[in-house]
Simulated scan of single mutants.
Amino acid sequence: MLLLATPLFYLLTKHYYAEDMIDIIEAVRSGQPIPALDLEEDIMKGVMIQFAVITFVLAVAMALTVRFISRRLWQPFDRTLCLIEGFRLENGRVPDFPESNVTEFVRLDSTLRTLMHNSLASYNMQKEFTENASHELQTPLAVFQSKLDLLLQSPDLTKRQAVQIQGLYETASRLARMNRNLLLLAKIDNRQYEQMEDIELTGFIGEMLPSLEFLADDIAICKEFAGAFSVWANRTLLECLVNNLVVNSVRHNRDGGEISISVGGNSLVVANTSDDPPLDGRLVFNRFYRPGNKPKGNGLGLAIVKAVCDYHGWTVEYAYKDGLHCFTVGF
Rank of each mutant, 00 (worst) to 15 (best):
I34N: 01
P291M: 05
I259C: 01
L238F: 10
R282I: 00
L212R: 03
V250W: 03
K321N: 03
A319N: 11
S154R: 11
E85I: 12
T236Q: 15
L157H: 03
V247K: 15
G167S: 12
I199E: 02
T273P: 07
L212P: 04
T6Q: 06
P295S: 12
I24C: 02
P7G: 09
E85G: 13
S70K: 09
I205L: 05
A52R: 02
L2N: 11
D275W: 11
V57P: 01
L58Q: 03
P95F: 07
Y289T: 08
I259K: 02
P98C: 08
P295Q: 03
K45E: 03
I165S: 02
R72C: 04
L182Y: 10
L3V: 09
G46N: 07
L11D: 11
G264Q: 00
V250A: 01
C326W: 02
L151W: 12
G257W: 07
A162E: 12
G301K: 08
S211R: 14
M48A: 07
V329A: 01
E197P: 05
R235F: 01
R72N: 01
A172K: 04
A18I: 05
V106G: 03
N272A: 11
K223A: 04
T65V: 00
M208G: 08
E207S: 07
L182A: 10
A226E: 15
H252G: 02
T202S: 13
E239R: 11
F225C: 05
D20P: 00
V106W: 01
L168G: 03
D96G: 04
L141S: 01
L115K: 10
T315M: 09
N132G: 08
P98Q: 05
L2G: 04
G281R: 08
Q195A: 14
P140I: 12
L89R: 06
V305T: 02
N286A: 07
S100V: 08
I304E: 05
Y289M: 08
G313I: 05
N190D: 15
M196R: 14
L151E: 09
N132H: 14
D20A: 08
R180T: 11
D20R: 01
F285L: 09
E90T: 13
N190A: 15
E197Q: 14
D109Y: 04
R180V: 08
L151S: 09
G330M: 00
T236D: 14
T55V: 14
R71A: 13
L3Q: 11
I199M: 04
G299W: 04
E207D: 11
